[in-house]
């Protein structure tokens, strides 16, 4: 521009300048297009790549994370790693872990979050039990040893929130007709997605896996109400004066259960 001022904005110079600027702008626009397409493709996060505790939603995370690796360095268990270029995984340079390789040990002081200089890992997460890295899902009941009637229980035993995030629920073993099935049942509100269950599963391919919440969970319709909860909240029946008609059971004696837990043989 200063050249232009000196030469009194001759039209040839001006044309030259505008031509150069237009060329550069077009070049940048082409580069910007490629970059935009590439970043859109790079947003696809594989289901088995789990973000560190406190990670913002994937969309926000990709705008906040500067890919410095400080969380990786402060992880005492070498759980976290940075995605490398060319790897079919999360966006290049961002931190993640694979539960089946090394799960999150849920450190009480959450060093990875403390190390994050940008808040891509949310510093308001102070209790690791509130972390929400994903949800464990018992993904294959046909191969899970507990569902086959054995007492493997490993996923339940290793759960840092045993009896909160994973409970063993007893149902009759209809195959033997005389045993119980202790089915490992995940309670998603308590599960942090640390992946210790997935790591510990004794099968060659884990029967329980941590998945991102978006894949693992359904969502209840907003207008649904659970009648019994509403009743408990209100302290009484919500619709007063419902007439309780007698239950009509054809022949109650015909439905004697084959197996009744806790009632002896």
């Amino acid at each position: 521009m200063s050249d232009l001022k000196k030469t009194g904005l001759s039209s040839a110079k001006r044309r030259q300048f505008l031509g150069d600027a237009a060329r550069t702008a077009c070049g940048c626009a082409v580069a910007a297009t490629f970059l935009t397409v590439y970043q859109a493709q790079a947003k696809a996060l594989p289901a088995d790549a789990i973000r560190p505790p406190g990670a913002l939603t994937e969309e926000e995370f990709l705008s906040a994370c500067v890919r410095c690796g400080l969380c990786v360095r402060d992880c005492p268990y070498d759980t976290l790693k940075l995605a490398e270029l060319g790897e079919t995984g999360p966006a290049t340079g961002t931190p993640y872990f694979t539960a089946r390789d090394v799960p999150c040990e849920m450190c009480e002081d959450i060093p990875c979050v403390a190390a994050c200089p940008t808040g891509a890992l949310d510093h308001s997460l102070t209790d690791i039990d509130d972390a929400d890295m994903g949800v464990a899902v018992l993904i294959d009941q046909e191969n899970c040893l507990n569902f086959l009637g054995l007492r493997c229980d490993v996923c339940y035993r290793v759960c840092p929130l045993i009896d909160e995030a994973i409970k063993l629920e007893m149902t009759p073993n209809t195959r033997t007709g005389s045993h119980a099935v202790f089915s490992p049942t995940v309670y998603a509100d308590a599960c942090t997605g640390c992946g210790k269950c997935e790591k510990a599963c004794v099968l060659p391919e884990s029967a329980i896996k941590v998945l991102p919440r978006r894949i693992a969970r359904a969502e209840s319709a907003e207008h649904y109400r659970l009648g019994w909860e509403e009743k408990a909240k209100a302290g009484n029946a919500l619709v007063p004066g419902v007439i309780d008609l007698p239950d009509r059971v054809p022949d109650a004696g015909a439905f004697e259960p084959v197996f009744q837990p806790g009632k002896g043989q």
């Binding site: 970043q39 969309e59 705008s63 890919r67 690796g69 940075l82 490398e84 290049t92």
Partner: peptide
């Protein structure tokens, strides 16, 4: 526009340094 650090997917400078310190991949 994209709401993500798009250039960091291709920034050769940060790719090189991160590659040296954390693992090169295809950097």
């Amino acid at each position: 526009g994209s709401g993500s650090l798009a250039y960091e997917l291709v920034n050769p400078v940060t790719l090189l340094h991160r590659g040296l310190v954390f693992g090169m991949g295809f950097a």
